[in-house]
Simulated assay, not measured.
Amino acid sequence: MAVIPMANTELVAVAWLLSAAGIEPGQVATTLPSDSAAWAENGFVHVVGAVGGSPQVDYALREPVVQIDTYAVNPGSGKPPWGKAASLMELIAAAAYQGAGMQRALTLLPGYPQARVMSAHFTSEPRRMPGDDSSYARYQADLALHWITL
């Protein structure tokens, strides 16, 4: 029996983040690219995965909390660009407050069903994560997404 592709929280989180104003294609994924030069100009949004939340019992509404990390780097410099990483996180915060990113179909990977994010909000204040040996600037926050499969 063939496996039927199903929407999941990581796919929905990536698609929703890519729909945010100011986020560029290729700037969001579940894995941080090893070549920092590829994302040095605009920074990168890493969807770490679900860290909490729960689905509804009586209907197919998913309510995960997803860890989001934003990264920025200055190649050839040991000084992390904290402002760039913070600004990238604030683009995500702004998207959560704008109705344009809600209540519309999100296209996931080819072959997967579409999903709709009903609402999104931060469950924690974005926080600076110092001490990276690579001199990356990293901010971290938890984002609650309420979504359904279409």
Rank of each mutant, 00 (worst) to 15 (best):
G52W: 09
G52N: 11
G53I: 03
G53A: 06
G53K: 06
S54A: 15
S54K: 11
S54G: 15
S54L: 10
P55T: 07
P55A: 12
P55L: 03
Q56R: 13
Q56E: 15
Q56N: 14
Q56K: 12
Q56L: 12
Q56G: 14
V57S: 10
V57K: 10
V57G: 00
D58T: 14
D58V: 10
D58G: 13
D58W: 11
D58L: 13
Y59M: 11
Y59G: 10
Y59N: 14
Y59E: 13
A60W: 01
A60S: 11
A60D: 14
L61A: 12
L61N: 09
R62T: 10
R62M: 14
R62I: 03
R62H: 14
R62N: 15
E63A: 13
E63L: 10
E63K: 14
E63C: 11
P64E: 05
P64L: 06
V65W: 02
V65G: 00
V65C: 01
V65Q: 13
V66W: 04
V66L: 09
V66P: 05
Q67N: 10
Q67H: 02
Q67E: 15
Q67V: 05
I68D: 06
I68P: 05
D69R: 14
D69E: 15
D69L: 06
T70Y: 08
T70E: 08
T70H: 07
Y71L: 15
Y71W: 15
A72D: 01
V73M: 01
V73L: 10
V73P: 00
V73Y: 00
N74L: 02
N74F: 01
N74W: 01
N74G: 00
P75I: 09
P75D: 09
G76T: 09
G76F: 06
G76P: 09
G76N: 05
G76E: 07
G76L: 04
S77V: 07
S77Y: 05
S77M: 03
G78S: 13
K79E: 15
K79F: 05
K79P: 00
K79G: 01
P80G: 04
P80N: 06
P81G: 01
P81T: 04
W82Q: 11
W82H: 06
W82M: 01
W82V: 11
W82Y: 10
G83A: 12
G83R: 12
G83E: 12
K84I: 07
K84V: 11
K84T: 12
K84R: 14
K84N: 07
A85N: 01
A85F: 04
A85L: 03
A85V: 02
A85G: 03
